[in-house]
Computed example of a mutant assay.
Amino acid sequence: MVELPVVNQPVHRSGALLDHLARRMRLRAESVLAPLGLRPRHLVTLTVLRQQGGCSQQALSGTLEMDGTNVVGLLNDLERDGLIERRRSPEDRRRHVVVLTDKGARVLVKAECALAAVEDDVLGALDETQRETLYGLLQQAATGVPLVCTGDDADADTEQC
């Protein structure tokens, strides 16, 4: 009988727990976004457009890691609802720049407030310090770059809920 070497492994594995929390968050998020006419992918798109101040459809496709055809359908939904506009690029008239409309910015703030309540529900057992720690660790895991918070990082474009 061959003995396998003992490998130092953490006592706890996080994958299943992260999946469970993500599922709870996703289900609740979908239920609060639906009355606003949004799906999670709409929210992500609106958030990216606010952060970038608009961008080309191609750049948006890359940022969202979505096929260009799917991005066109997504943008059609958002444009139909008046949340975004496609404008001709001043640098290249063959391309479009996608921008968030004022209505889109207002709906995004409402969605973020609704999602804050969802997060409070799902993460209610954690205090504010623990939530900040969790956020920093998740950000670090997602990007591979440690998050540095100064306490002055408030997003000026986001209203308080």
Results as ranks from 00 to 15, higher is better:
L46C: 03
Q51H: 11
L21T: 12
L17P: 00
L43K: 05
R24I: 04
G54H: 04
R39P: 00
A59Y: 13
H12F: 15
V44G: 08
P40V: 03
C55W: 03
P35Y: 04
L18G: 06
V32D: 03
R50I: 07
S56Q: 03
R28E: 14
P40F: 07
G54S: 04
H42F: 05
H12Y: 15
P35R: 00
G54F: 06
G53K: 03
L21V: 14
V44M: 12
Q51R: 15
G37R: 07
H20M: 08
G54Y: 02
Q51P: 01
V44I: 13
T45P: 00
C55Y: 02
R39F: 09
A22E: 12
Q57N: 10
L33M: 02
S14D: 07
A22M: 07
V32T: 07
R23T: 11
E30R: 12
Q57P: 06
T45E: 02
H12V: 15
G54V: 07
S14Q: 05
R13K: 04
T47S: 12
R50K: 14
M25Y: 15
V48H: 13
E30K: 10
R13C: 00
V44H: 11
H42C: 08
Q51Y: 07
R28Y: 11
S14I: 02
Q52I: 03
Q52H: 11
A29W: 01
Q52E: 14
D19E: 15
H20P: 00
V48D: 11
G54K: 02
Q57Y: 01
L21C: 11
H42E: 08
Q57T: 12
L21E: 07
A34E: 09
H20K: 09
D19W: 14
L49R: 01
Q52R: 15
L46K: 00
E30F: 04
L33W: 00
L17A: 12
H20T: 09
V11M: 14
L33E: 00
L43P: 05
T45I: 05
L43C: 11
